[in-house]
């Protein structure tokens, strides 16, 4: 059975000056899945998300969302169409309360046109509870700790009623217990029918929540497949851990 593609890139490319940050990436995201996007630092993961979501102009290639060509759309239009994202470096609206922060998503996101500010403020109660921040509802965002700021990022994105959600390293900087609960949260978001692309360095999280993994290296596709396949792919190991590590690894194996 052919699965429904929600987002597709064709030869997506981004150059900074002469530097290729993303080079001819063809990716398909299927409706309802959790796809992992991994790669070493500087592999172009965030840049890739930026060119899809319109945060950065794309150099070449095409982006389709549910069959519609959205290449070069400004970010706000992409957001209203039903694509939401979180930021690796959290971007709360510090002068607003948690409720106001989340309400901005409900006001301007997918489906925001039918809500007044007042309705949006009321609407977000459920989402704030969903991410476990009900007790912080009227706190200012600048009073939150990092784990909660990460959750706030999630809540703001969810309030936009997205069909597709990009999570850019929402688990970085969290401790083991916090990661567990964040993983649980990602699964529950997926259960609400939202397709998710997770960028993550925490391998446990990748293995734990994703069904499929896409690997970028030097801006190009290196591999894709199930988490198990990909993490046992020698090229991926080499890209991640570097040649020296691999040499040493084999030397040690020989010695043993």
């Amino acid at each position: 059975m052919e699965r429904e593609v929600i987002l597709e890139t064709q030869n997506a490319t981004k150059h900074f000056g002469g530097l290729a940050a993303v080079e001819k990436v063809n990716m398909k995201i299927y409706k309802g899945e959790i796809l992992g996007l991994i790669g070493p630092n500087g592999a172009g993961k965030t840049t890739f998300v930026n060119i899809i979501t319109g945060m950065l102009p794309i150099t070449a290639g095409k982006v389709y969302f549910k069959g519609q060509d959205i290449t070069g759309w400004p970010a706000y239009k992409v957001g209203r169409l039903g694509i939401a994202r979180t930021f690796q470096i959290v971007k709360p609206f510090r002068g607003m309360t948690v409720r106001e922060n989340v309400a901005v998503g409900a006001m301007f996101g997918h489906g925001g046109h039918k809500r007044s500010p007042r309705e949006a403020l009321e609407h977000v109660d459920e989402i704030i509870e969903f991410v476990g921040m009900a007790h912080l509802r009227d706190k200012h965002a600048d009073q939150l700790t990092l784990p909660y700021l990460k959750r706030l990022e999630l809540a703001k994105a969810l309030a936009m009623d997205p069909e597709l959600l990009f999570l850019d390293e929402v688990m970085a900087g969290l401790n083991t217990k916090e990661i567990e609960s964040a993983m649980e949260l990602v699964r529950r978001i997926n259960e609400r029918g939202i397709t998710i692309l997770v960028i993550e360095h925490v391998m446990k999280a990748i293995v734990g929540v994703t069904q499929r993994v896409f690997v970028l290296n030097f801006g190009q596709e290196l591999a894709q497949g199930t988490p198990h396949e990909v993490l046992n792919n020698p090229e991926v190991i080499q890209a991640y851990l570097g040649e020296k590590f691999v040499e040493r690894f084999f030397r040690q194996q020989k010695a043993a």
Partner: peptide, 26 residues
Amino acid sequence: LNRKMGYSWVAIREDEDAANMMGINT
């Protein structure tokens, strides 16, 4: 301030990229 415009202004002041990504025509 009671309209969406007010929220978009403050959102832009606090973080323009986030505001843009959240559907605000900045």
